[in-house]
């Protein structure tokens, strides 16, 4: 039933590239340690996967490229452009790549020079760092696999769907939904803890709340402008959190959301710093 395979000699498996920009390598680690990794490696051919294979090429011609990490150096940017040029489908893998990651926490607070000075002092480096940005700021992204790190079932679902020529329907509902289905008590209602469940995209089956730990938002805001930071900020204020706490909490993984600043501003006013 698949579209007729064009004549191919030798290896006809789809070609896959796994690349990292600036990140902790957790998303690749997750991909490399899914239970069915050997099955995957039989179904596809990894043309580039530096973390696992020395037979890797930078920007190999691939059908699908998984890119983890944010654009944090000039070299990252060059590599990303090369990767995009050589890939049919480009997938942003993980929080850094999708939302800029924790390295964007200071977005709007400190510019790159201030960050650099704080860590390296006045020392000059031969390489140029940049303010961390999600890859979608620079190239077209075909699919997003959020999470810090992404969940195994979502990685498997994407690869299986990719192999039959489609892609999973992206989730557009918050962690709260999965949390209720899992039967967790709501720690935001009960204890007034700063749980970001209502604005963070589902997929983790409310993993942390299951451990009685409030959501820090590692999967990033719900897409399609349905992350209601303003409403949640109001709720947090009612629970006794300060404006600074709210702003900081929501920005750990969400500072690049196009609406966050406007929405927080409507409730909390401007930056207090």
């Amino acid at each position: 039933m698949m579209t007729i395979i064009e004549e191919c000699t030798g290896d006809c498996r789809p070609r896959v590239g796994v690349y990292a920009l600036t990140s902790c390598y957790g998303c690749q680690l997750k991909l490399a340690t899914v239970q069915k990794i050997i099955d995957i490696s039989n179904m596809v051919s990894f043309e580039s996967f530096y973390m696992l294979s020395s037979a890797s090429k930078m920007a190999a011609d691939v059908d699908v490229a998984f890119v983890e990490g944010s654009v944090s150096t000039e070299r990252d940017l060059e590599e990303l452009m090369e990767i995009r040029k050589h890939s049919r489908i480009l997938v942003a893998l993980g929080a850094c790549s999708v939302n800029g990651g924790v390295q964007s926490w200071a977005e709007g607070e400190m510019d790159h020079d201030a960050l650099h000075k704080c860590v390296y002092g006045d020392s000059k480096l031969t390489m140029q760092g940049l303010q961390a940005t999600p890859i979608s700021k620079h190239v077209d992204v075909d699919y997003y696999l959020p999470g810090c790190p992404p969940e195994e079932d979502e990685i498997m679902y994407f690869i299986s769907a990719f192999l039959i020529g489609t892609f999973p329907e992206p989730k557009d509902y918050p962690v709260c939904a999965e949390c209720r289905l899992a039967g967790n008590p709501c720690i935001l209602i009960e204890r007034g803890e700063p749980c970001l469940g209502p604005v963070i995209v589902a997929g983790c089956k409310a993993r942390c709340i299951g451990f009685d730990v409030p959501c820090v938002g590692c999967r990033g805001p719900v897409p399609h402008e349905t992350a209601w930071f303003d409403s949640l900020a109001q709720t947090f204020l009612r629970k006794g959190m300060t404006e600074k706490q709210i702003r900081q909490r929501m920005k750990i993984f969400g500072s690049h959301d196009p609406n966050i600043e406007r929405m927080l501003h409507s409730i909390l006013g401007g930056e207090t710093e």
Binding site: M1, T3, G165, T166, F167, E169
Partner: peptide
């Protein structure tokens, strides 16, 4: 959409 895109790739004889 996703499903109709697949349907459009159907060939006569497909189920």
């Amino acid at each position: 959409g996703r499903v109709t895109d697949r349907i459009h790739k159907l060939q006569p004889g497909d189920i």
